[in-house]
Amino acid sequence: AMEMGLACVVCRQMMVASGNQLVECQECHNLYHRDCHKPQVTDKEANDPRLVWYCARCT
């Protein structure tokens, strides 16, 4: 999947907007926009540098 680069696995886009940054699952290393992931990634989750985030598939 490395050839995908830094794109969201849901929408396949790399564009990021304020409040909709890409977050990386620490287990599978897929990237998700906060708005694309279900459930939506919260501000607290996205902005906490100590948080280890896992996508819905890996939790």
Rank of each mutant, 00 (worst) to 15 (best):
A17G: 07
R12L: 07
L31P: 05
D48F: 03
C55K: 01
V10K: 04
M14G: 15
A46H: 05
V52Y: 03
R12Q: 14
A1K: 15
R34A: 09
P49V: 08
M14W: 05
Q21T: 15
M2W: 05
C25T: 01
E24S: 04
L6I: 12
V52P: 13
H29C: 05
C11I: 00
M4N: 13
K38H: 06
Q26H: 11
E45C: 07
D48S: 07
C55E: 01
C25M: 01
R50C: 07
Q40G: 12
T59H: 13
L31G: 10
D48C: 03
S18H: 13
M2F: 09
Q13D: 08
N20D: 12
C25Q: 02
C28S: 01
E45K: 15
P39K: 03
V52N: 11
Y32Q: 03
H29M: 07
E27G: 10
R57D: 12
E24T: 05
T59L: 04
D43H: 06
L6A: 15
D43W: 05
N20T: 11
G5S: 12
K38N: 04
C8H: 00
L22G: 12
V23W: 10
E3T: 06
N47H: 12
Q13T: 08
T59P: 06
C11G: 00
E45V: 10
N30H: 10
R12W: 02
C55F: 00
C11K: 01
N47I: 07
C11Q: 00
S18R: 09
C36Y: 01
K38R: 11
A46E: 09
C55T: 00
C11L: 00
P39F: 03
R50Y: 08
M2S: 14
C28I: 00
L31S: 14
L51H: 14
V41D: 03
A17P: 12
A46C: 06
G5P: 09
E3N: 09
Y32D: 02
E24W: 02
R57N: 09
C11S: 00
H33Q: 01
V41Y: 02
C55R: 01
A1H: 15
E24D: 07
K38S: 13
G19K: 14
C11V: 00
N30L: 12
L6N: 15
Q40I: 13
D43V: 09
A1M: 13
V9M: 04
C28R: 01
P49L: 07
Q26R: 11
L31Q: 15
G19S: 10
Q26L: 07
G19I: 06
V41S: 04
V16N: 13
Y32M: 06
C25A: 01
T42W: 05
V52L: 11
C25K: 00
Q13E: 08
M14Y: 13
C28H: 01
G5F: 03
V23H: 08
D48Y: 05
